[in-house]
Design a protein around this nucleic acid. Structure first.
Length: 128
DNA sequence: AGTATGACTCATT
DNA sequence: AAATGAGCCATAC
């Protein structure tokens, strides 16, 4: 019954198919899950940690797919390199991302992380 | 199969 | 310094 190939998006695959691309998604999620509470990271840093082969856009796609995997991926801790909550619109509610961050002690103002530079958690450095 | 889009980033103008 | 174009690679149509 494995005749169903990859008609479905790899993001929706139930962890059964070991597609190379799927590994990339898992890698992203794994890194994001290692971000400590109260800290934030960026798409570019994560992509670079994975080898800089993929552009930051792919990390964003991985985040979009992260909602269907478990354990939950703290996507709210991933912002763009300016500390802007560019992905907040993709959460259940437009304010959920900001609220989750504030719950972890991160101050957010106008969709931007305050003291982003200090809170920035770089996998290239931390997981080096 | 080719085109368009995207939770980004960097370089150039 | 702000704006624009190009690079990036996978998904969606």
């Amino acid at each position: 019954m494995a005749a169903k190939k990859k008609t479905t998006t790899n993001a929706q695959l139930p962890l059964a198919d070991k597609s190379k691309q799927y590994s990339f998604f898992e890698d992203v999620w794994d890194v994001v899950r290692q971000i400590p509470a109260g800290r934030v990271s960026t798409y570019g840093a994560i992509g670079r940690y994975l080898g800089a082969k993929s552009s930051a856009r792919m990390v964003g796609w991985a985040m979009n797919a992260s909602f269907i995997v478990s354990p939950k991926v703290p996507a709210q801790r991933v912002v763009n390199r300016m500390g802007l909550l560019t992905g907040k619109a993709h959460f259940a509610t437009p304010t959920l991302m900001e609220e989750l961050l504030q719950e972890e002690g991160i101050q957010v103002e106008k969709n931007k992380v305050v003291n982003f530079t200090e809170l920035f958690w770089d996998p290239v450095v931390e997981l080096a």
